[in-house]
Design a protein around this nucleic acid. Structure first.
Lengths: 199, 199
DNA sequence: TTTCTTTCTTAACCTAGTTCAAGGATTCGG
DNA sequence: CCGAATCCTTGAACTAGGTTAAGAAAGAAA
């Protein structure tokens, strides 16, 4: 086996949108830096400039902001086969608003912003790939906004469970509550109601 | 004056991110279709497939969804020098979730999705331009999500006023309330409180 | 002008979701 | 295996924001 097993996943991720020949694959992989994260380890800290995108091979991460009262607000999750970064900071190269932290021991591949630029020059197809990634992010984000504006807390939870069952399995409920814009206590109440236990 | 005045605005909009020569400008403009909209006129209806992006020369539009109870939820505004479309539908070419409607008599330039594809082939620089537009959309959208999750109704309103004073001037308050995720009655209460009129 | 519609506000009442405080259940590090 | 976090749940008291209903002000249409 010439390539380490962990690059198979990212190559099939890329192959979903663009087709690469062997040489292009080699170039791409040469830009990636593997990193392992312990549970609770912070990959990016709020206030720092985001210099890398991370592709998750295994494990799970969350991105969150801490508000002025110290409350934590989960903005996104990322599990195996997903990308995560503080897009605002990555794009603008200004201090970011997200802390990205491992929910479980994880293995990721990092792609530096500068290397991404080089990659665009050597393999222009990647412009297209990352444009599609961003398009999908935008659509997902907008849909989430609409859900927050139009659905009740219970409906948001139900929708989340059917859309992201795999996240239900690896993220603690209080993080999911935060992501859904409610308190953990209220999520608990919803779950009791849904289980038929009154009141 | 060789070019109609109304293309100046869109060319300077494009020039903010990519540099075009005369021929490229000519090609770009040849793909644009001017359209005028009367106040309340619908440019795109919820459920239809979005086939064009619109660049606003003059006037103002809003994009909104109607939920199953018939409630209207404003998802975005667009004023002079902005682009608007149902990105979900435009990208996926599936029936959309937004209705896009003129808030005032408006003048827009339409770019068909197919023509955009042709434009990419003839002037590849535009790939970059539209990628940047989408990046900015994504960042703005994410920031809005964070605001909705972390700020009170009053804080959201104050933030909106300072960030979009020009929208304050052309959109009715009930649309702004909807955009901010509150009822018009509650926005009214906030405004009274802020004006110092008790209670 | 007059009428009709849209926009904005008020006030009284209501409720979805929060806060606070506490206890039990798991899980994790050592 | 033990102690300490972390996680989840409960319940009671509270509040930010919603609902309903009504009227005033200001345009637009005619």
């Amino acid at each position: 086996m010439r390539q380490p097993k962990n690059t198979d996943l990212i190559l099939s991720n890329v192959a979903r949108h663009i087709r690469l020949d062997d040489e292009e694959e080699r170039i791409f992989i040469s830009f990636l830096h593997p990193k392992t994260l312990k549970r609770k380890e912070v990959q990016l800290k709020q206030g720092d400039v985001c210099t890398h995108s991370a592709f998750i091979i295994d494990g799970a991460l969350k991105g969150y902001t801490v508000d002025k009262e110290g409350g934590e607000h989960v903005i996104n999750f990322a599990v195996s086969d997903w990308w995560i970064a503080d897009m605002y900071s990555l794009i603008s190269q200004k201090p970011g608003i997200l802390t990205i932290e491992a929910l479980a021991d994880s293995e990721v591949l990092l792609l530096a912003k500068d290397d991404q630029q080089l990659l665009f020059e050597k393999v222009p197809k990647f412009e297209r790939f990352f444009r599609i990634l961003i398009e999908n992010s935008l659509v997902a984000n907008q849909q989430r906004l609409i859900n927050n504006l139009t659905l009740s807390a219970e409906e948001r939870y139900q929708h989340f469970m059917t859309k992201y069952p795999f996240i239900m399995e690896c993220a603690p409920l209080h993080s999911i509550a935060s992501y859904l814009g409610m308190t953990p206590e209220f999520l608990s109440k919803i779950r009791r109601r849904m289980a038929g236990r009154l009141p």
